[in-house]
């Protein structure tokens, strides 16, 4: 039987939200961080709207599905981080990967708003099969399963975007998820890259 857990603790948040694009750019510049190519592409949504080339509503739907999955992934990593099963180097990795998912979610939500949509919120509670997570390997295998699913989901999303910038951005996130999957598999002692192609 699955258990329900609370949403992740906001105290683990790694991202800093700025109120507008200029402020965000300024913040990122001062902090020495570089806005990723994916974020640039996503934030370009405003330009698409300005040109009157409004993406179909399906783009917002696709982005919201991705956002929902990212928010769940954040919660899943929180479960792993708080399980007490992860040893220090692996725990750091999990928190780093969770941070990536937070960045994905942040950019996706902002883009949905720019496109005139309403981003989905994190659920108050998520259901995870925590009764099956008894060792570090169990947690890693569960995370790897979610990351593999995320790769497939983005792979299936890339071709359906009306806006090619969004497709490019989704492909960029896909690459990040694939790296997560490979590293988790490596940590488990599995072949990190088991095939030449993803599906």
């Amino acid at each position: 039987m699955s258990s329900r857990i609370q949403s992740p603790d906001a105290s683990l948040s790694l991202a800093s939200d700025a109120p507008n694009l200029e402020t965000r750019r300024s913040f990122l510049g001062k902090s020495g961080l570089v806005l990723s190519g994916a974020a640039v592409a996503l934030l370009a949504g405003r330009d698409v709207l300005a040109k009157g080339n409004r993406p179909a509503g399906s783009d917002v739907n696709v982005l919201n599905s991705a956002l929902g999955a990212e928010l769940e992934a954040i919660a899943a990593y929180q479960v792993g981080a708080e399980s007490g099963l992860l040893q220090k180097p692996v725990l750091n990795l999990a928190v780093t990967f969770q941070g990536h998912h937070k960045e994905h979610a942040d950019v996706l939500a902002k883009t949905i708003i720019k496109l005139g949509g309403q981003p989905v919120s994190a659920k108050e509670k998520y259901t995870f099969p925590v009764e099956t997570l008894k060792t570090q390997s169990d947690v890693l295998r569960f995370a790897a399963m979610l990351e593999k699913g995320a790769v497939s989901a983005y792979l299936g999303a890339v071709p359906v975007f009306e806006n090619r910038d969004l497709a490019k951005a989704a492909a960029s996130i896909l690459g990040d998820e694939a790296m997560h999957w490979a590293i988790l598999r490596n940590a488990l002692g599995d072949a990190p890259v088991p095939a030449a192609f993803m599906s």
Binding site: S65, G68, Y126, T127, G149, S152, A153, G156
Partner: peptide, 17 residues
């Protein structure tokens, strides 16, 4: 094996995305 593609959003026994 193909069902692994669904794991980002679906599970057999409970609702997800």
């Amino acid at each position: 094996a193909i069902y692994a593609r669904c794991f980002a959003c679906h599970a057999l026994a409970y609702n997800r995305t």
